[in-house]
């Protein structure tokens, strides 16, 4: 989980950076340029396959882990400690992950599928930026995206630190650093992502 998790964490940095180009408010020129580069570079196409493999592996591992762990306590407690001994989001990685999976299906059908269709089926280059504007003009989509990103944020706050712990990186010297970076990373990435649909919906970006 940790290796695929870190891989996805790194991907999110790239994803947020490229998408963040829309905030230049240059009618999506910069954004489209990078989007075009990403979708037409053969090396990146290979990495994309890797990305999907990592994502699918992460999902499968997650589902298996949660499924197996759920069987380890056949009779449940009548009273649970709640947040007294652990954070709710740490205990809810399976649920958060499942929400993210649903969100991903919606998200990919909006953008990835569209791009691939135009790339391989219709062979006409759409402006991804235009597409974003179109998709995010619907309120329900914006709400779904913001909710998805909030789930992502909690998922990352646990996941970031947890990945280090699983890889055996835990020392009093570096723990505060890992913790701070983890939370900062989660908040920044998720703030950036959630601002995209909001900004477009509210017309801040033209």
């Amino acid at each position: 989980m940790s290796v695929t998790g870190i891989f996805l964490i790194l991907f999110l940095i790239v994803h947020a950076t490229v998408n963040g180009m829309i905030f230049f408010n240059d009618n999506g020129e910069m954004f489209n340029f990078y989007a075009h580069f990403l979708s037409h570079n053969w090396l990146l196409r290979i990495i994309e396959v890797g990305l999907f493999a990592g994502l699918i592996l992460h999902i499968i591992q997650g589902l298996m882990l949660t499924g197996q762990n759920n069987q380890k306590r056949p009779v449940k407690y009548s009273v649970n400690p709640g947040n007294a001994t652990s954070k709710w989001y740490s205990r809810s990685m399976g649920i958060l992950g499942s929400l993210l999976l649903i969100f991903l299906v919606i998200h990919l059908s909006h953008f990835w599928l569209e791009t691939k269709e135009s790339l391989y089926v219709t062979h006409k280059e759409d402006s991804l930026f235009e597409e974003m504007k179109e998709v995010f003009s619907q309120l329900w989509v914006v709400i779904v995206y913001v909710c998805g990103v909030i789930a992502l944020c909690w998922h990352l706050i646990h996941g970031f630190q947890s990945a280090f712990q699983t890889l055996g990186i835990n020392s009093p010297k570096y723990n505060p650093l890992i913790k701070t970076i983890g939370i900062a990373y989660s908040l920044i990435i998720c703030f950036a992502f959630s601002m995209m649909p909001i900004a477009i919906y509210l017309g801040w970006i033209q």
């Binding site: 652990s86 954070k87 740490s90 947890s162």
Partner: peptide, 20 residues
């Protein structure tokens, strides 16, 4: 089960053994 790093063990350990 497998560890998912929730830290509940450390919080409940009567000898306060660290998850490090």
């Amino acid at each position: 089960g497998a560890c998912t790093n929730t830290g509940a063990c450390e919080a409940e350990c009567p000898k306060e053994i660290s998850i490090s």
